[in-house]
Design a protein around this nucleic acid. Sequence first.
DNA 1: ATGCGTTATGTTGATTTTTTCATATCGAAT
DNA 2: ATTCGATATGAAAAAATCAACATAACGCAT
Lengths: 124, 124
Amino acid sequence: MKTKKYEELRLHYKIWFTDDNDKGILGDGKYKILKAIDESGSLMSACENLGITYRRTWNDLKSIEKQLGFPLLEKTRGGADGGSTILTPEGKKLIRAFDDFHEKMDEIMQYHFALLKQQLLSDE
Amino acid sequence: MKTKKYEELRLHYKIWFTDDNDKGILGDGKYKILKAIDESGSLMSACENLGITYRRTWNDLKSIEKQLGFPLLEKTRGGADGGSTILTPEGKKLIRAFDDFHEKMDEIMQYHFALLKQQLLSDE
DNA sequence: ATGCGTTATGTTGATTTTTTCATATCGAAT
DNA sequence: ATTCGATATGAAAAAATCAACATAACGCAT
């Protein structure tokens, strides 16, 4: 009964960065957007890929850059292809750092979570 | 400019457990409630201590036990002191495991976050 | 039997978040 | 100059979350 429940347990986590007033800057959600933009080259296609609304995503991006105070994106409007959005070098650097961090955390978390399950399943 | 922003960066994170359908079971919020109940011996005083509403907390607790399928709490009503809520041994075990996990993660996260900051502050 | 403090639960109203819709702007290509 | 596909932005509608209030049940003490 209870042991079965514990074995089915899954771990989830979210990380986010804030400024020194704990006001959010960048988290998992916004990171995903930036990554999708980097891969697709435009905001619109990034939104379609992720299944999220353009309107909301646009707000999110605006808030990131407002918080950080320097641009992560380079946007163009008009032209043959309608426009584009790509990451600045600083933007790429940021998502790479975030990526690396996540990779490490995934590994460490799952390892310790396995230990926790054992702790729960043991009879004391 | 940008480097200053990075130095001011703070890390936050949340962890939570779900069942195998990713339906939430226990997270930081509910963990805090359980811990406060353990320390105070009643739901009401736990809520006052945490500054959260009784009504909402009661709903949260109900959902935990519904998800887990076995009780974490032992409640009594009436009597000289009006009633009480205490953790079952299984409940105590769970919050202890969560506690241990959090402690480890806090340490590991902060360590790797420091590395990430260095990565961001370095010029490439 | 009345009072007291706590658990238990419904309901309603407020607040916040998220979606949806509508519209404007831009610039290359035709 | 018109079309096209993308960015840019406002505003309203809808949904989800949260807070507040009211009320009942319970059982020991007096």
